[in-house]
Design a protein around this nucleic acid. Structure first.
Lengths: 147, 147
DNA sequence: AGAAATAAGGACATTAATATCTTTATATAT
DNA sequence: ATATATAAAGATATTAATGTCCTTATTTCT
């Protein structure tokens, strides 16, 4: 559904948002550890998010990543769009170029409903909402193994 | 959403089903041409479908692939399961292993709805239904370019 | 029996995604 | 100023998906 890169992106941002009140910049080491992702790969992803203006960053000691508090909340669709693109959110289920409501592929209509649901999710939910759920203890980002 | 291999599989089967009344075996060349897919890659996919008993085949002159008419209709879920597996139909949207209703990841509930819709589609629709739509002229399998 | 057509199977090639490592640029703190 | 911490950037490695090619087995037809 989403690429690994995209999942890491969402998780990274949710983690940053969940720590937004601490008013500090968060480094790659901490992010990768928090979301259980390969650090250098995560670095690449953060670079993209940073270039797209979705996340802010600062180099140097005490540098790291953070979410601009003055900016509007980040919708999931922005993240997916930045990392995976929008092709499989609007394209045909069977990958046919000319597929449309007028000239549909065999599963066009049925598939549209699934895509609509997904679009609804991505356009309705923000990183901040997800972070809030986490803080409430309603959900989690990383599987914690307890001995 | 689906791999290319899976899309080729669905399209191949829909094509076979749409020709089922002709009572002949259909070769790889014809299939690949009909659905606009790489022939040898399609061959691999047909091998899998054949091993799984989803499609029948015969070697030799006038050999080819065909759908057993005495067998029950083929649900899309069977094809997806054979080619892509069921992991991303039941797994967590963020790929977390321990994610469940009791211990959900941040987008667990929202994502469940999308997956449910998809499952509903795959478990409700058969290859034969899609083939029928095609025969009705309601939909198509291949973009036809007319000069 | 022999030739031809076809799927099955195996080996290889290419491409894209994921992951790692090294170097560079920049900011901070001492 | 210098050392240090950090993101940015570049280079390379690994893995998985996709695609191609060649050989083999099986069947049919003559």
């Amino acid at each position: 559904m989403f690429s690994k890169a995209c999942k890491y992106a969402i998780k990274s941002l949710v983690y940053l948002a969940s720590r937004a009140d601490e008013d500090r910049k968060i480094g790659l080491t901490e992010i990768a550890d928090a979301i259980d992702s390969p650090m250098h790969f995560t670095a690449k992803i953060m670079q993209v998010l940073s270039k797209q203006g979705i996340v802010s960053s600062a180099k140097g000691p005490n540098g790291g990543f953070f979410i601009d508090k003055t900016a509007p909340d980040i919708y999931l669709i922005q993240v997916v769009s930045a990392i995976d693109g929008l092709a499989h959110l609007s394209g045909c289920g069977l990958g046919l170029k000319g597929c449309s409501a007028e000239h549909p592929c065999p599963i066009h209509d049925e598939f549209s409903e699934v895509r609509d649901k997904l679009n609804q999710l991505l356009r309705g939910q923000t990183i901040q909402q997800l972070a809030a759920e986490m803080s409430d203890g309603k959900s989690y980002l990383k599987t914690v193994i307890m001995k």
